[in-house]
């Protein structure tokens, strides 16, 4: 099966995506559409069809007659740096955990 998106459609990488849910659509129809359009489906605790979509994806869904609720903007960005351990933190944490356990070399 060939890619459904042409190269020109994807050359411009989106800088933002959106969390979206499909409303006013039977669940079964919505999940089939999400799969057919190769959309990034996210688990949803409320049983909704939740997706991570680009603006282009949202447009395609609208063109197919779906009601699309955009619930959050998700910029394309690296993990927030305050969530990444520093090397020193990682090493100190490990040292702290295994402190007192006899290790090779007698430490």
């Amino acid at each position: 099966m060939a890619s459904r998106r042409t190269k020109t459609q994807t050359t411009q990488a989106p800088t933002v995506r959106f969390e979206a849910t499909l409303g006013a659509t039977p669940y079964a129809k919505a999940i089939i559409a999400a799969a057919a359009l190769d959309l990034d489906r996210l688990p949803d605790s409320k049983g909704k069809v939740k997706l991570l979509v680009s603006a282009d994806d949202a447009r395609r869904l609208l063109e197919q007659g779906f009601e699309v609720h955009l619930t959050a903007a998700v910029p394309v960005a690296p993990l927030a740096q305050n969530l990444v351990m520093s090397d020193a933190q990682a090493t100190n944490w490990l040292e702290q955990q295994v402190k007192g356990i006899r290790r090779k070399g007698g430490r």
Partner: peptide, 14 residues
């Protein structure tokens, strides 16, 4: 076998 959350499209997340 592309069904449900599996795709043969390189642009798909699955």
């Amino acid at each position: 076998v592309a069904q449900g959350q599996t795709s043969c499209s390189p642009c798909a997340e699955v």
